[in-house]
Design a protein around this nucleic acid. Structure first.
Lengths: 334, 334
DNA sequence: CTGAAAGCGCTAACAT
DNA sequence: ATGTTAGCGCTTTCAG
């Protein structure tokens, strides 16, 4: 790989002239510039970032840590983040923590050792000492979708709790009194918030809180659901706290030949492709997924440009109830 | 940020002892090790990768370029790639080219300047001089899903053409004689191959090749499809060359109240979540998506471990026809 | 406007 | 087993 001095030698000038041409740092005489550009092209010079960074130059790379890149929700976030960063001249070092705190910790360490300019993360667990350390090294850090536990940092979340409350209220207004909340046993921040929102709505309406905790595997979902449906008083509506669970509920209701929304109404948190393809179409709470990623990048970039700002910001993005057919509203087309 | 010599000073030993402890390069006396570890912890030392790389150490980072990270197909690939790389001790510098050759070119340049160990790409266009240059810099490079045009490099693809032929044949065996192939006007390698496979099957059966070219936007799809369906002789089956088009076809057939598979049978290339949720369920050609990413990483890692190997490998992964209801086979449950 | 020198943090190679 | 030195490729600083 050719270096600056290689180029300088060929062009018959000093290293600094070459450096200045490459970076446009300062004006160089036209004749020098010509010679340098010629030599540059001739050897196919590519700057060595490692050397620049070692010299203290900021690395134009942002780190992004998500729990699972194949999950459409995270993938959309990541994509939006990446695009925003790219527009601002940054590349994104993306990594999946596979929902594992240990891996997450290793990843942050590597990112710090690579001197990324900043890190955004959808934290996987509750232990977040590693993020605290990142912050101590002076690297700005942002959490999205879920807040950090102990670390005080810029945060972006959606209005999980009020949204869940509102969705539940919508079902209540349809006259439902026995509404089942289907959630997962393994509770992350967002899931907990949604269950809370559901519970609040039910309590306010003086209705019984009924939560069915599913155990990761879809097999268990059918059992759990069967059980809940048999229990009296009879459930007449279901609030599924995410798209995966919603699909599970949908399949099970079909298997049992239970009509939606007539026998059981359904609202899901998270919009998903199939929601408009199945009949009836599914009423959902839609999250501004791409916005989450976009804004996270924006906040991080803002931190980089204003290192002085101290207070951690918390941005709450608004979700939207997309009324379709499964909640029992007047049937619409498409 | 503390450096090696900071640590050395505190521990009261030489820099190399610290380096050796950090990297486990060689045995160090227990007493020294203890002192060093203590100092390491005390200052929270994090190695500076930039310096290591500048020293000629290999960068444990792989580059991955995909056209769009929010697309589930690419996201799944990326995730599998990332996981395989991670297991081998590599982080992945991921970037989306946004289907743009220009961006792709810029990205490769940055990756080279960051001295990634290798690059895997789903190339966006036909111009691939930039990839040629990467290869010339001695950085191994792999293409997945689509081959490079001019560059000779390791390649991973699926058996698009035979698979499309086989799917079409399946429809022909159901007695269909007028089968429409729905494709996009903007043809990538994979799309072209699939259309070719369809055409081959039709020609071999001495049946008329009928291709409907849709123009990106879904609005156009409905028009195109309406037109094709009106044309005589009447279409009795549709082969959609990807999931997006399949969903479009599905929606349009529903709008026109055309029964699947009785009036029109349907097979799609690409499996998708909704395919098992809609009624009837959709028969599809399933690609080994994760395998594509996994194997790409494996091939790249293999290159890194065996720099001598010269010949470019081409691996063709096998797809599978998943028979469900929309093709007209005996109706099954679930 | 241009060049020479110093040094970023690390490790390979050579002392001790 | 441990320490010392040189230099990776670049940019900042200072002299011309």
């Amino acid at each position: 790989m050719p270096t600056l001095s290689d180029v300088a030698k060929i062009a018959g000038v000093g290293v600094m002239s070459v450096s200045r041409v490459v970076n446009g740092t300062r004006r160089v005489s036209p004749s020098t510039e010509r010679k340098v550009r010629e030599a540059l092209r001739q050897v196919g010079y590519v700057p060595n970032e490692a050397a620049r960074i070692l010299k203290g130059q900021p690395a134009h790379v942002l780190g992004l840590i998500v729990p699972d890149l194949s999950n459409p929700f995270f993938a959309t976030c990541a994509n939006a983040f990446h695009e925003t960063a790219w527009r601002a001249g940054y590349l994104t070092l993306m990594a999946s923590s596979f929902h594992d705190e240990e891996v997450e910790s290793r990843i942050t360490e590597i990112m710090v050792s690579r001197r990324v300019a900043g890190i955004a993360a959808i934290p996987s667990g509750s232990r977040d000492d590693h993020f605290a350390q990142v912050q101590e090294s002076g690297i700005p850090i942002v959490s999205l979708d879920r807040p950090f536990q102990r670390v005080e940092a810029d945060t972006l979340v959606v209005d999980n709790r009020p949204a869940a409350r509102f969705a539940t209220k919508h079902l209540i207004e349809h006259g439902h009194r026995n509404i089942l909340c289907v959630a997962e046993a393994e509770m992350t921040f967002t899931k907990r918030e949604r269950v809370e929102g559901y519970s609040e709505a039910m309590r306010r309406a003086k209705l019984p809180v009924r939560i069915s905790l599913v155990d990761g595997l879809s097999r268990k979902l059918s059992d759990q659901l069967d059980l809940a449906l048999k229990t009296r008083p009879k459930v007449s509506a279901v609030f599924a706290i995410n798209d995966v669970l919603a699909v599970g509920v949908l399949k099970q209701l079909r298997k049992l030949s239970i009509a939606i929304p007539d026998e059981i109404a359904l609202i899901a948190f998270d919009d998903f492709d199939a929601a408009t393809l199945v009949r009836p179409t599914i009423t959902v709470v839609r999250q501004p997924v791409a916005d989450l990623g976009r804004k996270a990048a924006a906040v991080l970039l803002d931190r980089l440009n204003n290192p002085k700002r101290i207070e951690a910001s918390e941005i709450v993005l608004k979700t939207k109830l997309i009324v379709r057919e499964s909640c029992g509203c007047s049937i619409k087309k498409e």
